[in-house]
Amino acid sequence: QEPLTVSMLAAAPPHKQKQMIGERLYPLIYNVHTQLAGKITGMLLEIDNSELLFMLESPESLNAKVAEALAVLHA
């Protein structure tokens, strides 16, 4: 699957942009947090698209945000 790019996103309406990012984000999170993948993905989709694109390419930053989301979820 080719990487999601800014120009690919720009061609879609805003709600579709989040959908496109979510479809990429969900499997990555599902690998680690099967039960909570839907909720974690939903939380992370509130982040700016530019940062989400970066996270898709950066496992370290994605893991950090997932850890933050889990902390909030369990609070």
Binding site: H15, K18, G22, G42, L45, E46
Partner: peptide
């Protein structure tokens, strides 16, 4: 949104509505 339904769950293949319905 009051936070009761937060966070919204993402499901692959299902159109994402985000916080619009809360």
């Amino acid at each position: 949104g009051s936070g009761i339904n937060w966070p919204p769950e993402f499901h692959p293949g299902v159109p994402w509505k985000g916080l619009q319905n809360i």
